[in-house]
Nucleic acid binder design. Sequence first.
DNA 1: CTGAAAGCGCTTACAG
DNA 2: CTGAAAGCGCTTACAG
Lengths: 344, 344
Amino acid sequence: MSTSRDLEMKQISIKDVARAAHVSHPTVSRALRFSPLVNAKTAERIRDIAGRMGYQPNAVARGLVTKKTGTIGVVVTSISDPFIADVVSGIEEVANDHAYSVFLANSNADPAREIKVVQSFQERRVDGILVAASRVGALYVPLLSRLRVPIVLINNQHPDEFVHSVVIDNVPASISAVQHLIGLGHRRIAYMGDQFGFHSDTERFAGYRQALTLADYPFLPELVVHGDGKPEGGGQAMDKLLALPAPPTAVFCYNDMTAIGALRRIRSRGLSVPGDISIVGFDDLFIASYVDPPLTTVRQPKQPMGRMAMEIMLKLLSDGQHETIIRMQGELVVRASTAPPKRN
Amino acid sequence: MSTSRDLEMKQISIKDVARAAHVSHPTVSRALRFSPLVNAKTAERIRDIAGRMGYQPNAVARGLVTKKTGTIGVVVTSISDPFIADVVSGIEEVANDHAYSVFLANSNADPAREIKVVQSFQERRVDGILVAASRVGALYVPLLSRLRVPIVLINNQHPDEFVHSVVIDNVPASISAVQHLIGLGHRRIAYMGDQFGFHSDTERFAGYRQALTLADYPFLPELVVHGDGKPEGGGQAMDKLLALPAPPTAVFCYNDMTAIGALRRIRSRGLSVPGDISIVGFDDLFIASYVDPPLTTVRQPKQPMGRMAMEIMLKLLSDGQHETIIRMQGELVVRASTAPPKRN
DNA sequence: CTGAAAGCGCTTACAG
DNA sequence: CTGAAAGCGCTTACAG
C-alpha cells in the first residue's frame, strides 16, 4: 500500500521566485521569457534563482491569459490501427519539437463518441485539431468546423473545402501498382475495393481504370469486387473472384489488410501466390513484409504525412495561411507476392 | 487558400450566460455543475439558456482554480509499437469514460526526450502519469517520482517500489508456454530471450527453467540465446541455435517479434516450422496470427492492462490508496507453429 | 438559495 | 528597465 496524500505539495509560483529575487513578479515573468525589456544581468540572476528553486511555469495559467494553450487535439478512429499509429507518431514528433502537446482521443467511428471528443477538445481550448481517422462520419467535418479552430484532416474519406487536408495521391499510386502487374504480363487484373462511397476507394479504382485504359486493356466489371478494408472482407471478396469462370491472374487491393485476407484465402484454397494469382496491396504496413509471401504494395509515407499535417497546423497557427490540400506520393514496393502469370 | 483570421471569435463565458439569465455568474457556475445550492427551477432555466447560447465551459480556467486539470500524461517509447498502441487504447477508453483527457508523448527511448516530455507534463499540470514504455531508461522512474503526481507503470522493465504498476504475470505464463511444448513431446527446448537485465526477460526465463524442473528435464545452458526483442535479433539468435551439434526441437521466444525473426530464419534455411522446429512467442500481436505458420503464443491482455492502469490511476486520484502492483494473467493461444517433434 | 469578494498563476498594457 | 494594476474565466468560502 502507498498513498498519494503526501503528493500534495505546493508548487512554486512566479511570486515565490519574485520574492526570492527581490523583484516584482511581472519582472520574473519577463525574465523567464527572455523579454528584452528586462536588464540582462537581473534577468540572468532571476533565471538562475528560478532554476535552483525548481520553478516550473504553469501552462494552465499562461493559457488562460494568452488564450493559446499550446495543445492540439488529435482524433483517430483507433490508435490500434497501425496506419494511424504511424501517422500519430509523425504528428507527435513535430508537435513536441515545437513545444505543443497533443491530446489523443479515439472515436471508434462511433458518432456519439466523436461528439464527446470534439466537445472535450473544445472545453480544453485546444489551438487546433488534427483528424487521422480512416472512417469518419460524414457529419463530422461540419461538426468540427463549428469549433472555430484550424483543422487538418489526414486521408479523410469525406473531403471538405472548409478544412485543410493531407492525402495520399491515390490515382498515380494506383496506376503504378497496376502498371507493375501489366508489366509482368498480366491481362486479367481485378480490383478489390473497400466499401462504396469512400473517397480513397473511388480514387484508387479510378487509377486502376486509367492504367487499364493506358494499356488498351478492356475494363471488365466482373473483376471488380469489394471488401471491408479488413482481412475478412478481403477473403470474402476473393471467394467471388475465384468463383468466376475465368478468375483474374492478379488482384490490386484497396489496402494491405484486404490483400492479406485475399492472400490467405487463395492459399487456403490450395492455390499459390504469386504462382496462380499475384496480389498487390496498398499502405505498406509493417505486417506486409511479414506475411507469406511478403506483399508487393504501395507504400504510404505514414509518418511524413503526420509530420506534414502538423506542419500545416503550425503554419495555420502562425500566419493563418496555407494551401488547402497537400497530396503526397506513394511508392511501389515490389516484394514476392507478384510474378508473371503462368497462363494468360 | 483559406485563412484562420476569421476564426478569432469570442467564446461565450459564464458571465455572458449570467447576464442573459439575470443572475450572478457564481450562480451560473453552480447551476451548470448541478450544485444543490441553487434553486431547481432557476438552475434548469440557466442550463437551458447556456445550452441555447452554445456555452462551453473553459476547462483551462477551471483547472487553474481547482488545481485539477482532468488530464493525464501518457508516455510511451513509440506509439507505432503495436503492443503499446493497444495499451494506450485501453487507457484512453477508461480516461475518456471518466472525462479525463490524455496527453500522449513518445520518448523514443531517448533520455533527452524523456526529460522534455516529463517537463511538459509537469508544466501542463497533469493529474497523473502513465508510462507504457517497453524500454524506459533506468533513471526515468526517479525522475518521474519527483513530480509529486501519481504514477502508474505498465510492464516496466525497472520495477520500483515508489510507483504503481500493472504487469503481466510472466512466470506462470511462461511455464504454460513451455509445458505446452513438453506436452507435445519436446525435450530439447530452447529459450530465446531479450537483452540481459530486462525484468520481463529474467522472469520469462525463470518460468522456462521452472517448467523444465517440474518436468525433471535438465537445464542445458547452450539452449539459451538472446535476441534484441525484434525480428533481426531473433534471426541471429536462431543462427546460433541452428549451429549447435544438436539443435533444439522447440524454441520459447521472449516475444512475438523475436519469434517471427526466428521463424523466418528457420524457413530461409530450408527447414520447416513446426516440422523441424516448433516456435512459441509471447504477446499475441495482431501479426502473430498472420505469419506463416500462424504463431502459437502467450496472449497478453493488452487493452485490459491499459484499462486497469487507468482504473488504478482513477483510484489514486480519488482515495489516493491502491495496492502497488497488479499482476495480470496471460493466456496460451495455440496455433500452427507448434507440433510434436519428428525426432527426439 | 443568492451574490459580492477573493483568488488560482500567469501576461500585458500602462505609468514612471 | 521596473512595478502596480487589471484581467483571463472560472470556483469557493463568506455573508446575507
